[in-house]
Design a protein around this nucleic acid. Structure first.
Lengths: 221, 221
DNA sequence: TCTCTATTTATTGTATACAATAATTAATTG
DNA sequence: CAATTAATTATTGTATACAATAAATAGAGA
């Protein structure tokens, strides 16, 4: 894996897992030192993260982790609501036992993370479940977009989520897998809509934005 | 407008309008000289264009205008097919006379471009029609994505399109405007689906890829 | 002490330099 | 003369330098 890509993933992880919280400043020198590359390389990944809405770059002020607005949060969830259920039909045409098994393993990991209260892991795994499912539908362009939306959702959940955002009264992801195994197209689609709507409505969007904490010890190693 | 943004738009235009054809190499020095900024600035916009799939950057080989694959072409159109018709309901809730007028002006421009055989203009205007419509639906995240898909479609049409790709037996964009004016939600949705399907099926996807011409005289001024 | 201003420090913006790699051309050999 | 190899040229990758801007600090006056 290229070095750039490596740095990109590490930073994306740190952001999505909330190690670098929304609002945290990302000074280039600090990162440059932490990753052992010059500012040039850092700027490259920061710009990428900015295009993908994970950080915000302000002219002459540098980058900080994006704190998604309430409007943005809703738009991201609405986008997923419009796309993901519609992927189910194509998904079903490819669905087989191996897939089912792979995803069920993922679900048990999710449950484990949730039980041991590892919120970050839990959020990450949820995202992965959704975008890997999207990938199976076969359209890479869409899958790519859904993946990005899922990552952004992680940021959103970190900012506005409640415990109820991950857990869901509709049970867990394994129920969807059951429906897929049984080939219930309409029910699966409906489940997906309901699931996303539940997440959407679980967000607390009337709270005040968090203060901008700057954890100096970036990736303290 | 910032200088970066300016360069970005000029290059995007040149690509989408087929002045820089698919496969054309984009040496940094040449661009750097043409735009009067150092390679640093050029690299920045090239990387952005690469993330948006308008150019392809290969390690140690630099950037060239993307020649979308057939698979990519279909996926982009399918993505639009999945999203754009679904935007109609939200679009209709905002639709009013001013919008109608604005879009009708756009349509006359389209017709004019088509009549005078200005294919590049025609393609560009078609893209604009679609993504400005998407914007009106109110979800910026989706609108952004649709815009990107429309621009990519321009590249695709330039590579695989026929005369039939822009003109359509279902008439032209003004028919959609009529349906919107009359508030015919279902018909408008159906029209949009049909329109996109028509474009999709008008592509010539069995032809051989074009040779990689390198027009040296970049933006000859 | 508080506030405003001046100075210093930190940080980013941009250009350039040099090394690494690829592409092109020239040279050599069968 | 063709084909392979060597030398040259072009091009990109990365680090660094310096200027421009913003942020933080210190000092002066009320």
């Amino acid at each position: 894996m290229s070095n750039d890509e490596n740095i990109y993933r590490q930073m994306l992880n740190a952001i999505v897992e909330h190690q670098l919280p929304p609002g945290a400043r990302l000074p280039e020198d600090r990162l440059s030192e932490a990753f052992g590359v010059s500012r040039t390389g850092i700027r490259k990944v920061l710009q990428r993260l900015a295009l993908e809405h994970f950080v915000v770059i302000e002219k002459n002020k540098g980058a900080q982790v994006n704190h998604p607005s309430k409007a943005e949060a809703l738009e991201v969830l609405d986008s997923r609501l419009l796309i993901e259920p519609q992927l189910i039909p194509d998904l079903l045409t490819h669905w087989n036992a191996e897939h089912s098994e792979r995803f069920r393993i993922m679900v048990t990991e999710e449950k484990h993370a949730e039980e041991s209260n590892q919120l970050a892991d839990s959020i990450q795994l949820t995202a992965r479940f959704h975008y890997e499912l999207a990938t199976l539908a076969g359209n890479k362009v869409l899958a790519n977009f859904v993946q990005q939306l899922c990552y952004r959702s992680s940021l959103i959940l970190a900012a506005y989520g409640t415990r109820g955002s991950v857990g869901c009264e509709c049970g867990d992801h394994s129920e969807l897998l059951d429906l897929l195994d049984q080939g219930h197209k309409d029910k699966a689609q409906h489940w997906m809509s309901h699931h996303l709507k539940h997440i959407r409505s679980s967000l607390i969007l009337d709270s005040k934005p968090e203060e901008n904490i700057d954890f100096q010890k970036l990736f303290g190693r």
